[in-house]
Design a binder for these strands. Structure first.
Lengths: 88, 88
DNA sequence: AAATAACATTCTGATAATATAATATTATGA
DNA sequence: TCATAATATTATATTATCAGAATGTTATTT
């Protein structure tokens, strides 16, 4: 079991509207980053930055696939947390 | 259903080790603030500050009871989230 | 009303988070 | 190897958070 400190680091990495939306989009069709970026209408560097924050927190992993990079959710619990929140 | 912005505000208010510990203590025996403060070994103003942050986010409510103030958890989902996290 | 207990608020410097422009990297195709 | 697409990194200015000391408030007891 992770320490409170580690647990709160995970939470912190989720606790941002843009990042919550990114996670939600990754939950569905998966990894198409540039599509997410277009749909969210944010600069590419901003999206990339948020992705990095979540990757550093261990929430996401990435694998390159030719010129694109595919992100996916590593910590299943994160999905549950978002589901709970959406019912609040 | 709350907006992503509101949802992330709730998460943000939880995403701190001290605050997670406070919530955990409130889950059990409830509201005795000064006891929590002693157990956590933090200055009273620091605890009070964290309590206010969570109250402003709507997570906690408080009612005065003579000279003491009793805090309790308002958003049940917060407990679930902590439970999920503790299993990560 | 003075003393005390239990909290809350204000203030301050320190640190961290945010957004985005600019630039760099990596991979593919002509 | 040039051009282009997709993504990452760096740099920077702005804003938000943190901890805790100092001080203020509210309620009780005598």
């Amino acid at each position: 079991m992770k320490s409170l400190d580690e647990q709160s680091r995970i939470l912190k990495a989720i606790a941002h509207p843009h990042r919550m939306e990114i996670i939600r989009r990754l939950k569905g069709d998966g990894c198409n980053v540039s599509e997410i970026q277009k749909n969210m209408g944010l600069p590419q560097s901003t999206i990339s930055h948020h992705l990095l924050i979540m990757k550093n927190a261990g929430i996401l992993s990435s694998r390159r696939n030719g010129t694109t990079v595919c992100y996916s959710i590593q910590i299943e619990e994160v999905k549950e947390i978002l589901d709970i929140l959406s019912g609040v």
